[in-house]
Write a protein that binds this DNA or RNA. Sequence first.
RNA 1: GUGGCCGUAGCUCAAUCGGUUAGAGCACCGGAUUGUGGUUCCGGGGGUUGCGGGUUCAAUUCCCGUCGGUCACCCCA
Length: 447
Amino acid sequence: MPPKALPGFRDFYPAEYAVRAHIIETWRRIARRYACTEYDGPPLEPLELYTQKSGDEIVGQLYNFEDKGGRAVAMRPEMTPTFARMVAARAQALRKPVRWFSVPQLFRYERQQKGRLREHFQLNVDIVGESDVLADAELLSIAIEICRDFGLDRSDFYARVSDRRLLNALLGHLKIHPDAWAAVYAVLDKLERQPRDVSAQKLETAGLDAAARDAVLGFGAIDSVDALRAAFGESADVRVHLDRFAEYANHLQALGVGEFLRLDLTIVRGLAYYTGIVFELFDAHGEFRAICGGGRYDNLLQALGGVDLPSLGFGMGDVVLGELLKARGKLAEVGTPVADVWLVPSESTAIAHLLAVASVLRRADVSVEYPLSAEKLHARKSGAQLKDAQKAGARLALVFRDDTLAEVVALAGASTDAERSVLDTADWLTAVNTSAVLAPVLTALGR
RNA sequence: GUGGCCGUAGCUCAAUCGGUUAGAGCACCGGAUUGUGGUUCCGGGGGUUGCGGGUUCAAUUCCCGUCGGUCACCCCA
């Protein structure tokens, strides 16, 4: 037995590859709809690119090693550092705002679990050079429109959105010392998954008084700007951020995706680098992990690339998304590519004729298959060959009756012989450049 | 890195209390038949029961280890 694929890595057989291609093609199509352009970087990077942002402890979660030149390198676990380097290097020359996307394969050395492997494909969309909330609305609408294009609607998923600036203003209003904010973030992040008394205990340990603790624990129940305004609107510091969030919501409404938006102060997105609006897309049934996450990180390019530009972006992986689409029956139409036409010769059809026809069709971009065995071509009865064509998934069969006649037989679906038509092959063989071959086939294919 | 559960054919599963040659469906390959349609019928290839060790007259079955899968924690994309 040859070695299997490594733990957490996937073999993509045609059926699985078709799903992967469907997902990635949809990502590309929608990103381009928003005038984003595609880029890529190296899958292998200097280890330092990741440790300078996240510290040495991240090394335990990376595929890293020393190359033959003695360099410490790592398979990329995320795209943002590469992106930041690329943008920073040409920051002066790039037209702003930059709207770029990429579909890198990313690697992470972690024990696999539901929705998380050691390798995945992730759409990254980033906008650089614009601090207005219009950019934030644009970004989230891309993620939502992608999910809509996969056939998901509000009953399948929604966006949970918070804002670091708003949350910080709230914490400040509650007189919580900035030193405790990180601890509060950690509690909010787990508010749903952790018993309430455990959360309360952690907040108390962080130094919050009873009133502040209750307020923070109550954040989970606030799911709208109006509710937040009612509770904290008297604070001018908070109101500034509430107004901006309301404007953001209005933009999303006008972009046609307002129904997916839900304010949720428990969305934290890690503890690092985000500085403004942050969001995650969740399936509405709560069965899966977040299918997408992102937000604004206005200081990251400064930290990674030495260029001070406001930025925002999101990542969407193929694993959880694929699980969700499968669970909701949105992959039923995704099939492996098959032949357009299957050639079935009669006993008297010369192989050279068959091949000439195949050539003409293929040069017209029609995919053609036939048995790759002279024995089968001539020994198998046409009925058996049609069965072969059917099983192979061909859309049409071109059945030669004798040396001069052939028929186009529709195989796809449950259709009968409605689309069957008889052709005169003499024209093909004497003048293969004419449309005599192509027209009936292309018509039957609907081209 | 920690813990729970699970490893039988390509896939889904079966095999009495530990008992004789580990079976079935699907899939695949060949054939018959439908002289041109997914049917039906016959046949075939496929397994070191994940791997290693132990207990036993006898292990797919019980025990230990290991590898793999899966789920959760940690952490995060």
